[in-house]
Every structure is written in structure tokens, then in C-alpha cells.
Design a protein around this nucleic acid. Sequence first.
DNA 1: ATTCTTACA
DNA 2: TGTAAGTA
Length: 128
Amino acid sequence: MNDQDRRSMPLFAIGIVKKLTELTARQIRYYEDHDLIQPERTTGNQRLFSFNDVDRLLEIKNYLDKGVNLAGVKLLLDPSMKKAEEAEEKATEITERELRHMLKHELYEAGRFGKSSLRQGELSRFFH
DNA sequence: ATTCTTACA
DNA sequence: TGTAAGTA
């Protein structure tokens, strides 16, 4: 078994994830409803989160703290966002005034790092 | 004891 | 988002 398999392995119940991310169960479930994460389910319908899910939630939390709304976070975490211009259009179209001003410039620079660099540390430094 | 869904403040 | 209710 390789690292990727390990990172995507369904291991933690929501109670663990709450402690790890300091998010409420309400928020975690809400983000799932909005397709920002897709945790596995046990036979009893209980959510099981992987390391990737936890990292993802941490990133979501960071963006949210920076003032980006769900629509914006969704775009930032979307693998299809390879070009800043593309994301910029969608962002301004969906979240209008919220992201338009702030995200315009920052997404442009962030986009220059490409998909693989759209991770926690690297991109977050653009959001001040 | 925990988590889940639904629904209302 | 928080929280209450009724379950699984």
C-alpha cells in the first residue's frame, strides 16, 4: 500500500475530525452537502473521513477565515481550475461583489503556480 | 456515548 | 450556523 492509498483511507469518525479541524459537526456536514468533501460512509451510514478529507477541511477553513465564501473555496479546490483567468471569470460570476475585488488580483497570482501548488501554505500567503 | 437527518430560530 | 428532536 502506498502513501496515496493511506491518505485516502476512510478512518475517522466526525468526532475525531471535529477535534482535528476545530470545525463543528454542523460545518463539516454543511461542506459535504456543498460537495467540498466526499467522506465515505460505514454500513450504518456513519461518515468516515480520510487524511485527505481532513487536510481538505483545513484548507477550507483557512480560505473561509480569509474571507472567501463557499463558492470561492469550491473554485479554489476544483482541479479544473488551471488558469487564473478561468477561475476569475467563474468567481466573479458566481460570488460577484464578494470575490470580485479581493480575489481578482490574488487568484491571478495564485494561478501562476498551477494546480499542483494550490495547497495550503503556498496559496494562503496571497490572502492577507 | 456518538452520529445522522430534518427543520426551525 | 446553532440547536432540538427522534433515530440508528
